[in-house]
Nucleic acid binder design. Sequence first.
DNA 1: ATCCATAGCGCC
DNA 2: AGGGCGCTATGGAT
Length: 549
Amino acid sequence: MAYEDGELVVAELDGGAAGDPQPWQGAVPGARYIWADTTRIYPRLLAEGVRIERCQDLRLCHAILAGHDAELAADDRWRRQGIVAAEPTLLDDQLLEDQFGLDDVVAEYRRQQALVAVEPGLDDHERIRRAKLRLLLSAESAGALIAAEMAHHGLPWDVTVHDQLLTEALGPRPRYGERPAKLQAVIDRMITALGVGSFNPDSAVNLIDALHRAGIEVTSTRKWELEKIDHPAIEPLLEYKKLSRLLSANGWSWMDTWITDGRFRPDYVVGGVVTGRWATDGGGALQLPKQIRSAARADPGWKLVVADASQLEPRVLAAMARDDRMATAARGHDLYQGLVDAGVVDTRAHAKGAMLGALYGATTGYGGSLMPELIKAYPQATAVVEEAARAGERGEIVSTFLGRRSPRPPESWRELQRLAAGGDAPAEEVRKARQQARDWGRFTRNFVVQGTAAEWALCWMAGLRQLLQGPELVDPTPEPVEGLRRAQPPHLVYFLHDEVIVHSPAACADRVAELIREAANQAGRLLFGDSGVEFALEVAIVDNYGQAK
DNA sequence: ATCCATAGCGCC
DNA sequence: AGGGCGCTATGGAT
């Protein structure tokens, strides 16, 4: 079932009848495993205690390369939908095996390699483009391994603490179908204050109707609209919204569904966002509210090492744009303060507003109004996002630093642009077309920075994962007494765009913190070489996640 | 009963 | 006003 060719090791998706010896009796050291889909294979290996050092995930790499090669893109067997159904069944497994034989895996690998190989006769520009793509393919594939390993280990989660938090906020866990006592009390307070009789506060229609009957003129029930109103019912209403959100999104049923054996195991979806960010499939791991983070607790004798990159996106922008002046502002720990110190803006809040405005495409507010200042001070960096926005407005594709490409605007978008460009289009259509073009421009503007930041984060994690396998951290003692868990080295357990958590034995947590910083520096150099940009981190060694930040 | 869009809000 | 997501509940459509 395994095919070896130098460093190339091809592993079939699955093979043989139940009971046959599996192809992996252990990982081949140093080998790069080439396979169709990490999510299909690696969880099973991890369950057997097998850890892989490197892989190439052909499905993920296909998705990236499809933006570069039309012929490859046309082979839609490799699209995610073709490989993983929402809920895979045994039939899907069978179809998959019929669809992808070993030959298909080898052929796809060869085809992908041909697109990124450095061959004689290529000019410098093309060599660099290919080298970046190779790095992106490795980083994405490493991400696939890391996501599976995170799911395997899980974020340590204390359901007792979680239950206490919920009980404190909402009252004791109610019987099925009932409202927690404190939640009901808040509703009662609100209804009394409104004085219009009982209604269902979960229904936006009922709620807005009740507010109107009480003489409160609102057009929506959004928090920020309600906050402006002076009425005794507003305070309990906002409190209700907060509590009901906690209950429905991260309450007891979430706990029952997502916490098993004291671990939170969300399904990360590598490359699940167009920009290259990860998504999750269930569990909402990327929206874990601060309210309940203290339930994420290290095991006894262990620590959580929590690290997040400070102002990652502005730093990434400075590095990818080779903007030395912005790199200088990023030299300190606080890039926004750096902008103030450089005399570009007067306050840190303004610096942050201006920076985020540049990244997201603000046109009004002080974010928008400070753009001229920012452009004057940092022409290099701002040109990168401005050009990306202009390209998007023209319907062009933009690219991250390593070469992940943005999607084409939809056909309906192109149609409207063509119509508006025609000359005799109604003024209303022209206005809509212009609006739509600006919207797409904001998307492409943000794409290049968000996507490159995602690449930095992948490289950071991939490097860290390797450093955590260093001999100093891996306990070499043999398996202890039967039934006891083997001593584990520190391992990644959580990822949130620009933040990681490592679960580490307390004794080596300090060293882990150093390695996280080292990995951040390495990632910066790996992507951008000697850009002069520091990738500052906030690192905390804590017992629970709530103590960080 | 099931699908889909929307409102609203959590995270970066 | 702005970028990217996922999740829950609601309510209309099928």
